[in-house]
Design a protein around this nucleic acid. Sequence first.
DNA 1: GCCCTGAATGGTAGCGCTACCAATACCGTC
DNA 2: GACGGTATTGGTAGCGCTACCATTCAGGGC
Lengths: 352, 352
Amino acid sequence: MSDSGQSVGRKRRGAGRPTISDVARLAGVSPITVSRALRDPQRVSQDLRANIDVAVRTLGYVPDPNARALASSRADVIGVIIPSLTNNVFADVLRGMYDAINGSSYQIQLGNSRYSPIEEERLLTTFVSQRPSALIVSGIDQTPTARATLENAGCPVLQIMESGPDPVDMMVGFSHRKAAEEIVRHLWHAGYRRIGFIGARMDPRSQRRLQGYRDALEPLGGVDPALVTTTPAPSSVSLGRDLLRDLMSRAPDLDAVFCNNDDLAMGALFECQRSGLDVPRRLGIAGFNDLEMMAAAHPPLTSVRTPRYEIGYRSVRMVLDAITGRDIPERVIDIGYELAVRDSTGGPVLSQ
Amino acid sequence: MSDSGQSVGRKRRGAGRPTISDVARLAGVSPITVSRALRDPQRVSQDLRANIDVAVRTLGYVPDPNARALASSRADVIGVIIPSLTNNVFADVLRGMYDAINGSSYQIQLGNSRYSPIEEERLLTTFVSQRPSALIVSGIDQTPTARATLENAGCPVLQIMESGPDPVDMMVGFSHRKAAEEIVRHLWHAGYRRIGFIGARMDPRSQRRLQGYRDALEPLGGVDPALVTTTPAPSSVSLGRDLLRDLMSRAPDLDAVFCNNDDLAMGALFECQRSGLDVPRRLGIAGFNDLEMMAAAHPPLTSVRTPRYEIGYRSVRMVLDAITGRDIPERVIDIGYELAVRDSTGGPVLSQ
DNA sequence: GCCCTGAATGGTAGCGCTACCAATACCGTC
DNA sequence: GACGGTATTGGTAGCGCTACCATTCAGGGC
């Protein structure tokens, strides 16, 4: 009689795929030894390992991740929650994540919160029910409920994109406020004096960039509210055109804009081209993120280079280290940013 | 003594989360009835359903998807394989997919093949081992191995992005060849006579667009190989600049370009701005996909509007219908495309 | 009254894997 | 040769859920 329950005379439910017992029988060992050989080869003697490898290949055995997850109450899954799929920023982050996870036995489970904290809560509940090996979430503005869920998830948790106090567990990001502050100061040093702000969506990171804009201008003569335009609408190049047109009509003496992101900056450039405003002499333009297109524009557009791919890549490496119990030297990483200064902020016409 | 194995005196392995048995005990029914009440409420009487709902809420019960998948040999997962995460085209497709799956109990399992057929094979093997409820793959150029895997996956399979003969199962897409043919004919009718082609990456869909370009020009005087530039390098705006510059230096009489995608078209526009070429009078420019930025450019750029979001949305609805056994009126859908004609192809200077 | 039918509920036995403990073999030490 | 340690392997008993079959009960036709 076989030991796998077939003796009952009922046909097996599965699609007839080979199981770990089939491999064990063929290799002449017990199932548990096969299990060990697959998960941690060092714990099995060379001879058996070789036999098992042959049996696995002969049968075309592929472990069932669901059975594994049930038995070990831990799925080889890393849950990732991002707020947007169309935002190029997160496309780069994801690319880094998928590159970093390649070759490991882990899977990324992706959730899209669409910038909604409630949706994020819901996704976290769903994810946690799968007992993931780790969770990665965007930003640091989780609801109290979501934060509690993260704290009780029983797995490593990593917050990405921002730096800030009081991490749930680990953190990889940078200060949007400081980055914005620095690029606005750059505009000032380039000679611009009436520097506006254009912002769309205004999610928490956008809010912090606006704060950085204010912090930069405060000691330099203060912020003129008439130079700040924001909208909750999602960002787009067209919106950048529209917002700059509005702003110019309301404040014709505007001589530079810091755009909340690169789409808006590109739109602002097109609006200048349409209305014949010289960039950078009549209007300086700076964006945020430094998407690839910024350097290719005419004139090339100044931006803040944010290490998006690297955030994605390092975050997955970090949680993998945490999962496998390796030492994590720094649990909170400020990954920094870099100004990408180009012609679009070359300075205004000297008014002498 | 309880009936859930605690009598053995060993502590339970799980994190102590309530199980379906806990809910059953509280509601005074058997576990199997709870299972039915959750999966198919109609099969349980109203009274019991109400009791069970209360018990579920009281305990905060969340079903374990792994246990469910193991017992039913079917995971509530839809596997999706796309070739790129940075390509905006797929970002829109994914957005549609995630919108369509919202509210269902299914999860999307995303794989990134990076345009590699081998990687696609590997991903498919991994996905199939999870016994997904459906599979969605990009394109129609799977390797024979991958195709066999799809055919034996034992679940609905949907190929997206293209239309073509011989689907594995279902299909939602459009003809890249025809779309390209049509836009090149548009350029001809606008008066352009030396129409070039700029292509990057040259994945199968790009190849078919190039074929469409050839098909359009063949009856109109033939294709001049000197006007075709392609590169296997990934597409970018900068690359569009470079490729147009090369092409112009090799063929100074070029009067229009059909760019394989919008990034390249945008780069081409910037190159014209840099070198002082009037668009559309000296050079007509057409792109492909009609990303949002195309309409906002200066001048606005002609493109082919491809229903990316809709492909994503409809594909997930279709496989959900297939999973739940609903009738699928059309298993192969040509979702079409639309020319978005704008100023950038307004016609050349009349040479009289 | 009988049988039949169908709807609602329950019992049993796994799904394929791993945690936990036990057993065995082998080695060196005193 | 007894002892204790280490390395390797196996046995048992689940993980939490659902497929499958059995049971119960109400209602209808004869």
